[in-house]
Design a protein around this nucleic acid. Structure first.
Length: 139
DNA sequence: CACATTTGACCGAG
DNA sequence: CTCGGTCAAATGTG
């Protein structure tokens, strides 16, 4: 088996909560969200989508901040400054009780074949510091 | 048994 | 109306 279509692991456990087809892409986009916090806390979300230009590439978009694991006193207010969160080890599939902190913002793509034109540069350029990211508005 | 995964439908916004 | 996004339910697997 070789990873054929599974994005990399970020050290977080994600649960797929949806998959939709994008008009601009010939491939469907997968929506993932933090497995923990039952569906209330960490707004950390991740979305994976193959580029129609390079079906061998996986564009992983991380949006939101991880608020899980937070030990005793932490968030206090400030926060935010960037995005990010922490970093963590790997992830198996089971880890309900304890979790590991991780961090990452935009992993972006997985080159499986070769190709060349990788819009990666563009993506990286965009993230620079922050993102236009509309994130979750009110919902 | 629990959890994760899957598909469909619904909703909000433009 | 269309597109994107999220939730809900059901099912399978470990």
């Amino acid at each position: 088996m070789g990873n054929t279509e599974i994005p990399p692991e970020d050290g977080y456990t994600w649960r797929k909560y949806g998959q939709k087809d994008i008009l601009n892409s010939r491939f469907p986009r997968s929506y993932f969200r933090c497995t923990h916090q039952k569906l209330y806390q960490c707004p950390a979300k991740k979305q994976v989508q193959r580029l129609d230009d390079d079906p061998n590439i996986f564009e992983v978009t991380y949006r939101g901040d991880h608020t899980c694991h937070l030990s005793t006193v932490n968030m206090g207010g400030g926060s935010s400054t960037s995005g990010g969160a922490a970093a963590g080890p790997s992830t198996s599939r089971y880890g309900r009780d304890v979790d590991y902190p991780v961090a990452d913002m935009a992993d972006v793509m997985f080159n499986s074949g070769s190709s060349s034109s990788t819009s990666m540069d563009l993506i990286f350029s965009s993230m620079d510091d922050k993102w236009p990211d509309s994130a979750d508005k009110k919902n």
